[in-house]
């Protein structure tokens, strides 16, 4: 298993081309929101720096706004808010991960993107309920690597707009 340093902004296809694809492993893009999270590389189109985000009135609270990506208006979801984590700020290291699920293309705002990681499937387990800050509905599993725990997110469910439940009760959607 190898760690690959991801450039600050770039296309997922290029990374894939360089490092190839193998089947018994999951290739995930790891990013940080305090804890480490990951999404399958197949769903990631590119990663961009955070520029101007235009706020859209009357949107759900976890929608940060829209951005202009080469002439296309893209919605950006604040993943911290969506997962009901402690609020954060947009910093220099923050990034927008442009994801594609089915026909939908959505941007996800995160604190920082670190690696593309190949995780052998046998290191992925179901999430232990008690430990998670986040509603396990959105979690596909956890990857346990060398003292690291990467929480694998189910983007499709996140985008479907179900209410997020936390210890404090159900947060309005």
């Amino acid at each position: 298993m190898s760690d690959i340093q991801l450039p600050a902004a770039g296309l997922a296809e290029d990374v894939l081309r360089i490092y190839g694809q193998e089947k018994k492993e999951l290739q995930i893009v790891a990013f940080s929101l305090g804890e480490e999270y990951g999404v399958p590389i197949g769903q990631v189109l590119e990663i961009v720096r955070v520029g101007d985000i235009t706020m859209v009135p009357n949107s759900p609270p976890y929608v940060e706004g829209v951005i202009n990506l080469r002439g296309r208006v893209l919605p950006v979801m604040n993943l911290r808010k969506r997962l009901n984590l402690a609020p954060g700020e947009i910093k220099k290291a923050s990034r927008v991960i442009v994801t594609e699920i089915g026909s939908k293309v959505i941007g996800i705002l995160v604190d920082g993107v670190s690696h593309v990681i190949k995780v052998p499937c046998m290191f992925v387990e179901a999430a232990p309920e008690e430990v998670m800050e986040v509603d396990t509905d959105f979690i596909q599993g956890v990857a346990k690597l060398r003292g690291r725990l990467i929480i694998l997110l189910d983007l499709e469910k996140l985008l479907r707009g179900k209410a997020v439940s936390t210890d404090q009760g159900v947060a309005a959607e």
């Binding site: 101007d52 235009t54 859209v56 949107s59 829209v66 939908k104």
Partner: peptide, 26 residues
């Protein structure tokens, strides 16, 4: 430019347009 409706349609906003300097105007 159409506004993505993944997160529902925001009330009072019909779509978006791009300005000369790249900014988005709703």
């Amino acid at each position: 430019k159409p506004l993505d409706d993944t997160f529902g349609k925001p009330f009072g906003v019909a779509g978006a347009s791009l300005m000369g300097d790249g900014t988005i105007v709703l």
